[in-house]
Amino acid sequence: MDVAQILKDSSGLLIEEDLLLLEEELQTGSYDGAYARSCSDTIASIRAGLSERPSGGVLGGTSQASDLGAPEDGLPKSASRPIVLVDSAELSPFGKPDGVRNGLEIDPFLELESIRRSSTYKSQLKSYIEQHDFFDESFVDKNFSRFDDLELKIIVASVCLSESFLDKYLDALDLEAVARYQIFSEEFFMRHFRELDAGIVLRQGANDWRTKKNRSKKLDAFLRLKGVMF
């Protein structure tokens, strides 16, 4: 986002909420220090002038209702002004950690769309998931159809998922990622033995019982019957 250009072109139209958004963009975006300071000075100057702008239908301290013209949509003409629109795609991909910007809730998928266009898409998505508490099993379940296969693989590697969730979506998940990164019970493993690679589960998985000394006798017997000797 070219903050300086916005300040130059729209200085007379910006209100406090606009200035707060631009200040946050300067703080979270990748801007040169001198550029950011210059923009901050301009914002301070605009903010100082906000109190001098006329408000309502009072000009020069005298009511001028007769000069306002006919109302438009129930508002006097003086109450309407051009709106400054900022393309969300130009904003930094990361807002505040809780997904809230200036007190307003932000749709996470607006930020995810920005991440999807990044050349470091995979690492940025993983970081985004780790930095946002709302990105949990419930969120994934609610929005499951909005993620593609690669995103689901990254989610499986980054989010702790319950066995009920894994049972529900196992056919749609990357099974190697499930075997390697998810924590589940011996019973779940035995139930899904055909789907999950025993070598990955027992050699590279995240479960404590993957080593022989921590396995139950039941799992040991099950593995022997399946011909698994490690």
Rank of each mutant, 00 (worst) to 15 (best):
G33T: 10
A34R: 12
A36T: 04
A36D: 09
R37T: 11
S38Q: 11
S38C: 02
T42V: 10
T42M: 08
I43Y: 00
I43V: 01
I43H: 00
A44H: 01
I46P: 01
R47W: 01
L50C: 09
S51P: 00
E52G: 07
R53W: 07
P54E: 14
S55A: 15
G56F: 04
V58P: 07
V58D: 01
V58L: 08
T62Y: 12
A65R: 12
A65M: 11
L68I: 02
D73Q: 14
G74T: 02
L75M: 09
K77Y: 05
K77V: 15
K77M: 15
K77W: 09
R81Y: 11
P82G: 08
P82Q: 05
I83T: 10
V84L: 12
L85D: 10
D87H: 10
L91P: 03
S92R: 07
S92A: 13
G95R: 12
G95T: 12
K96V: 11
D98M: 03
G99L: 00
N102D: 13
G103R: 03
G103D: 12
L104R: 09
L104K: 14
E105N: 06
I106Y: 00
D107E: 07
P108N: 06
P108I: 03
P108W: 06
L110R: 11
L110Q: 10
E111K: 09
E111T: 11
E111F: 10
E113Q: 14
E113Y: 12
R116G: 13
R117Y: 09
R117C: 08
R117A: 14
T120K: 13
K122E: 15
K122M: 15
S123F: 05
S123V: 08
S123T: 14
Q124P: 04
L125V: 00
L125P: 05
K126S: 10
I129G: 10
I129H: 05
E130N: 07
Q131V: 02
Q131R: 14
Q131H: 13
H132G: 00
D133T: 13
F135S: 01
F135V: 07
E137Q: 08
E137F: 01
S138Y: 03
S138D: 14
F139Y: 05
F139H: 03
V140Q: 08
V140I: 11
K142S: 13
K142D: 14
F144D: 09
R146Q: 15
R146V: 06
D148C: 07
D149K: 15
D149Q: 08
L150V: 12
L152Q: 01
K153Q: 12
K153C: 12
K153D: 10
I155T: 04
I155H: 02
S158V: 08
S158T: 05
S158R: 02
S158C: 08
V159I: 14
